[in-house]
Design a protein around this nucleic acid. Sequence first.
RNA 1: CGGGAAGUAGCGCAGCUUGGUUAGCGCGCCUGGUUUGGGACCAGGAGGUCGCGGGUUCAAAUCCCGCCUUCCCGACCA
Length: 468
Amino acid sequence: MATSALTAQGEDFPRWYQDVVAKAEMAENGPVRGTMVIRPYGYALWERVQAELDRRIKATGARNAYFPLFIPESYFAREAEHVEGFSPELAVVTHAGGEDLAEPVIVRPTSETVVGEYMAKWIQSHRDLPLLLNQWANVVRWELRPRLFLRSSEFLWQEGHTAHATAADAAAFAARIHRDVYRDFLVEVMAVPVFEGLKSPRERFAGAINSLTCEGMMRDGKALQMSTSHELGQNFARAFNVAFQDEGGQSSWCHTTSWGASTRLIGGLIMAHGDDRGLVVPPRLAPVAVVVLAVRDEEAVEAACAEVTAELEAAGVAVERDRARGSFGRRVTDWEIKGVPVRVEIGPRDLSEGVVTLVRRDDGARRTVARGELAASVRALLDEVQASLYASARARRDAATRDVATLAEAVEAAQEGFARVGWDLVAAGGEDELNRHAVSVRCVQRADGSLPASLDESDLVAVVAKAY
RNA sequence: CGGGAAGUAGCGCAGCUUGGUUAGCGCGCCUGGUUUGGGACCAGGAGGUCGCGGGUUCAAAUCCCGCCUUCCCGACCA
């Protein structure tokens, strides 16, 4: 057996991450610093993320629309915190069409401003509310320290924007998106257990009055924000005159929300489940859930592979037949790096016994099943793998999370994983102390781990960690 | 943007300290053959402005200066 194709996680985690991204043929750097070329396999994963999120987003009643890439610079100036938060990472077009522009144009880092402008036109009456929009788009935030999928100067995402008549309605909708779109997707599809909670005022989105987050734990113990949902209060409505008349003819500002998840989720997928053999993709997310491999290049074996592939396809399984040349071991390794959850291996021995061999990517366990039970066995095995990935991610996360009583203990625990410490302690000046040690407040939650209604609740707990 | 490390074939590297024939090695790639139940082997072959620009020198991958890029740590962030 040859040496590993990848740097071991324990040896150098960031290097391992890069190796996986490269060797699984997911993405590479673009010619301009911070840009990313997403290769077909990486994009197929993103398309699965899109499909699952889009379905859930539409189920909430939101509809897709598209707003322009270019935003007038003046829009940003209208919301003070927003412009302050984003100005360091804006890309600005000052020259186009062969001359200097009268007003510079911002390449969107997010679209609250331009959406606000059009919401104002579209909303007159309480009957126009709620207005529930989503867009799939690229955005640009100039990054000083780019990293494929995790931090690139241009990335892909969805951003939802909604307008409501009341603060309570806006808050309820943001919570619904958080729960029914993001948390449900992360847990049920991506098999990533999440810490959910509210962002501390310091970690909040620029211009929001409240931010909800799903935080995942990566296999090196660091945190990754997987999604955010923001209550924007009336801040943007005021800045863009998004107003409506109620039943009594009274005019008031709308309450808006925004919420997003990005290609960063692919980075989270890699780091939440990946192991020393490469990527590990949960079956429900996998663009290829099953790969069928011929152990030997023999006619009868190839014919059986073709039959099995067709049978699984007919059974609704995302199956691909391995067509690569080279030794069996090499082909196996290549599919392992790509994280395909289940392999069907067929060789002469299987043929003579009327069985096929099924191998799990996550634990390497193999079993043989009768040809007649193939489709049912594969489906059951995929469900098993899905459940098992979530369970082991959950076990790792719980083992690396400590409840502590002091800031010093929290900093110490954050060297290896997450710490849960009283929010009162953190809010009373403790956040500076944590930040000095590169530890940040990932979210604030109730003691039982549930989502609080506001930071004003008593006995809240801060989940703190080092973060990507 | 601050601190550190590095740029030599598609990828990973050696050579640089002490300047001097035709710049090497592994993987990958191409051709042919033998192989294939966990990263196969043999034979032949292609592939290089040594990151870019300038300087020193009879002579620069090697020494000097500037710039660019990448990676790590920090600040910022989805």
